[in-house]
Structure formats: structure tokens, C-alpha cells
Amino acid sequence: MQSSITNTAKRYGWAMIVLHWLIGAIFIGQFVLGFVMMRIESQRTAFELIQLHKSLGFLLLGLIILRVAWRLGNQAPALPPSVGALERRTAPLAHFALYAFQVALPLSGWALVSVSTLEIPTMPFNLFVMPDLPLAESDAAESFWTAAHWYLAYAGIALVVLHIAAALRHHFWLRDSVLMRMITPSSDQE
């Protein structure tokens, strides 16, 4: 039995599994990195961490766009019979919210660096200069986007915690296949 890159009616394929866990790790790591970089005393280290945070933010944005595109082109596995009617209606909304926050958060960071009066160029992984968004620079705009980025980060991490809790509930309490289908890929025989 050979694993499949695409989803089947019962399980996710390798592409979605890899994107899911990679995006999840970067998203959680970005939250931790953002928390640390704003509280570190060394300005040099803080600057380097901010540059890493921006680089990972652009990587996250690219990966989530790829994931959404892949999701639109591939069926999602059906939920097991143990999932109730209310959860069947709310699960797609929760996933949409996760996608929306994972797109909005890096975009708000990009907007933040674009309006900054410091005019520090953004160079993802020191490979190229990322152009700023066409937004006017000002202290007021920087304050707005700083607050937006902060609120989106905390709301996004709350959604991730809810997502993890739901997956663990399915695995340990309901004992269904919801979590395992995002760990074990589909096969060509399914």
C-alpha cells in the first residue's frame, strides 16, 4: 500500500498533512518568537529576532496560500459518524476562521512594517528586499497596525488552542479518526 499525496474520502494525503503540521509549528513558533522579541533587553538580539519573525511571517503567508489553494482543489475527508450535527456545522466555520487569521496575521505584520517611519527594509531570510504595501507611513498608522497585529495574534493563538483541544477531544474522548487522519496519510487503495 503506497501513501497518496492527495486526500481521499477518509484521510488527508501527504501534501495536506505536511502543510498542516508545518504551518501549525510556524504559527505557534511565531507567537512565541513575537512574545520573546518584544521583551528582550538586547537591542541587537531583538532586531535579529524581529527580522527572523518577519521572514517566517512571509513564509507562513506563502504556505497558507498554498494550503488554501490545495484545499480548494482536494476534497476534505468526511467527518466520522460520531460527529454530531452541531459540530458538523461549526467545524467548517472554525477551519475558515483559522485560515482567515493565518492570512490576516502576516498581512497585518506586512502592513505594520510598510507604514513604519523607521523605513527598515524587510529582507526575508536575507534573500531579497520585500516591497512595502502601498500604505502611507505615519506614527498613527504604525500604532493602528501594531494593535491590529497584536490582537490578531492573540485571537489566532486562541483559535489554535481551541483547534488542538477539539483534536484531542476527538482522539481521547470520542475515540474517532479525526486526529489520526491528519497524522497517517491516505493510500492509493482508499
Rank of each mutant, 00 (worst) to 15 (best):
87 E>P: 02
145 W>A: 02
82 S>A: 14
122 T>R: 01
142 E>Q: 14
150 W>D: 11
99 Y>K: 03
120 I>S: 09
100 A>W: 00
164 I>P: 06
129 V>D: 08
88 R>E: 08
68 V>G: 07
68 V>C: 02
79 L>S: 13
164 I>F: 01
88 R>A: 11
172 F>E: 04
105 L>S: 05
73 G>D: 01
169 R>I: 04
180 M>C: 00
127 L>F: 03
92 P>A: 12
115 V>S: 04
48 E>N: 14
50 I>F: 14
58 F>P: 03
111 A>N: 05
117 T>L: 13
109 G>V: 02
141 A>C: 07
161 V>T: 12
102 Q>A: 14
50 I>V: 10
151 Y>Q: 13
100 A>C: 10
171 H>K: 15
81 P>E: 14
68 V>A: 12
131 P>L: 11
142 E>N: 11
43 Q>K: 15
72 L>F: 04
93 L>C: 12
73 G>P: 05
146 T>D: 12
51 Q>N: 14
111 A>M: 07
164 I>H: 01
133 L>Q: 10
165 A>V: 10
119 E>N: 15
71 R>M: 01
151 Y>N: 13
54 K>N: 10
109 G>P: 05
75 Q>S: 09
148 A>P: 09
71 R>T: 11
48 E>C: 03
152 L>E: 04
98 L>V: 09
118 L>I: 07
137 E>L: 04
72 L>D: 00
69 A>W: 08
